[in-house]
């Protein structure tokens, strides 16, 4: 096994580079992704290697990016679109949900639309409005899309390649608060398939479920709880559509308690789906209702308030206390 230590941002860059080397039909499109290398530098250096026909600095128009990516897919290309920030995806929402998501269905399977849409998402970066949102639910709610989000450099390296080779459209959410911490990346083989959820810490008293930027928060919460003698299991969903229920349900059947956390507002969010799914599948194992720890149901606040908006380890452990009190 060849492993190397790198941050998620570099792992995504390496994954994109490898996908482009493996398949000449893979091309990148987005705002400022070429000469600048993207505002987060995820595509740094790729223009120099692959040229202007494969790394497209597009006009500043998200619907245009997604709509033309669809046209390129019709010719057999595998476009990877970068949306610069989560809050800027909405001008492309119609092309994603009315066209990209539905075209395979509309064409009764006669054509594939292997388009990946990369979206840096989430908070913790102290930025101004529209730069810290978590819009994953809108896309997970849309039939025809696959939605995934890595939480580690290794997952970033492999999941971006797996997403690009999927015959279906994939919305690829990148936790921007996790872009720079380093982690080990296995360059030889992926650990699990694209849509697998995974237990990332074992425990016996309660199950913490999250994805993307929340996984490191849940791991910190579990670490703190361990110091107090509580054993918490942590599940990284990794895939939001489809959800890989088996590891989730197995964990809850073992612990009897579950807390779901995400940065996005709670109402009708992923946590609601996970809570309902667990209740339907493991009702007789539950000792307490599945509790949610989420962003508040308000617009993302000004940056000086984001620490109070975003779920942290303390709020997660507060929910664990409530679950254990049943």
């Amino acid at each position: 096994m060849t492993t190397t230590s790198m941050p998620l941002a570099k792992a995504l860059n390496a994954g994109l580079r490898r996908a482009m080397e493996d398949d000449p039909k893979v091309l990148l499109m987005g705002e400022d992704i070429g000469r600048l290398g993207g505002v987060f530098r995820i595509t740094d250096g790729l223009l120099a290697t692959f040229g202007e026909d494969r790394v497209l600095d597009t006009p500043l128009a998200e619907s245009g990016i997604v709509g033309t990516a669809i046209g390129l897919a019709l010719r057999g290309y595998r476009p990877v679109c970068e949306i610069q920030f989560d809050g800027f995806i909405w001008p492309g929402f119609d092309q994603i949900t009315s066209q990209l998501a539905k075209l395979t269905n509309r064409l009764e399977g006669r054509q594939s639309f292997p388009v990946v849409i990369r979206v840096p998402y989430g908070g913790h970066i102290g930025s101004i409005e529209h730069h810290s949102e978590s819009p994953e639910t809108y896309f997970a709610h849309t039939p025809g899309l696959r939605v995934v989000t890595p939480s580690t450099p290794n997952d970033g390296y492999w999941m971006i390649q797996q997403a690009i080779s999927s015959p279906d459209p994939v919305i690829f959410f990148e936790p921007k608060s996790r872009y720079w911490p380093k982690g080990e990346v296995d360059l030889d083989q992926p650990a699990v398939p694209l849509h697998a959820s995974r237990v990332v810490r074992t425990g016996t008293d309660a199950t913490l479920i999250g994805y993307g930027p929340m996984v490191s928060v849940l791991l910190a919460a579990a670490e703190n709880a361990a110091a107090e003698g509580r054993s918490l299991e942590v599940v990284d969903l990794r895939s939001l559509s489809p959800v890989d229920w088996e590891p989730v349900v197995a964990s809850v059947e073992k612990t009897g308690r579950a807390v779901v956390a995400h940065e996005a507002p709670g109402f009708l969010g992923m946590g609601a789906e996970i809570a309902a799914g667990i209740t339907e599948r493991a009702f007789y194992s539950l000792e307490a209702p599945v509790l949610r720890v989420t962003g508040y149901d308000v617009p993302y606040p000004p940056a000086k308030l984001e620490k109070l908006y975003l779920p942290d380890a303390d709020r997660v452990l507060d929910a664990v206390d409530r679950a254990l009190a049943y």
Partner: peptide, 25 residues
């Protein structure tokens, strides 16, 4: 002759992307 597209104007972008691909090809 591609499918009818009911959302007004959507197909213009698909056509443009397809035409971009003709150049790349």
């Amino acid at each position: 002759f591609r499918q009818y597209t009911l959302v007004i104007g959507s197909q213009t972008l698909h056509a443009t992307g397809y035409a971009m691909g003709a150049q790349f090809d």
